[in-house]
Amino acid sequence: MSSDPHTLAGAYAMYAVEDADERRAFEEHLSRCPECEEEARGLRETAARLGVAVAQEPPPGLRDRVMAEIGLVRQLPPILDPASAPGRRAAARRAWWPRAATGLAAACLAVAVGLGVVAVRANDALQQERLGGQRIAAVLAAPDAKTVTRTAGQGAKGTLVVSRSQGQVVFFSSGLAALPESRTYQLWRIGPGGAVPDRLTRPDTEGRTPPVVIGELGDATKIGVTVEPAGGSRQPSAPPLMVVPLPSA
């Protein structure tokens, strides 16, 4: 760590400061020093030019894939932050991390980020998984995220995290019994019209299922979990072993 954080401006603009504390100290320095903020901004623009100068025609399939994929990705709302000058970014961070849910969200985020990392190692097959990871992180970190937890027999616990701003629901659970290869847990969106099949999920060795994003909710009022043959079913083959209600508006 340097006595004069300002010398970090170049390294910071080129993402060459890996120590998070050092980065934070520099950002705090910027928030107190308008000229430094100005310099940092010019250096960020300069770094971007270094990147633009090595532009290369991307592979031809990329455009179509990106265009197809954005249809599946919900956009983030803007950060509504009334404060405007110094410390603005810290305020934005606080708004972004709901205080009450921080512990839970952070724990889940770690899982979601873990998912992301796993997916990064593989490629196309896990593309959706990684996108899911990003969406999960967005839901869990949303300022308006609400959680509902229900327990079922023998310590099984299911949790829904709902964010209206993200328009999405994430489910994860713990305490689920291990299943043979021939069976799977399946989620259902349950409403007046019956049960609509949703994701299949399997617990890890500690009985936890990773967070998954639930599909279009429609008129669903709760999420149920059943045990089904591997590959899943179109109709639940038994009453749900766990039901978690969606919080009402």
Partner: peptide, 20 residues
């Protein structure tokens, strides 16, 4: 290294004519 990254990038900024 920190100093060279900063003054090097500043020189690049001025040479490339980056608008600020």
């Amino acid at each position: 290294v920190k100093t060279r990254m900063r003054d090097g990038l500043i020189r690049m900024r001025d040479c490339l004519g980056v608008e600020r």
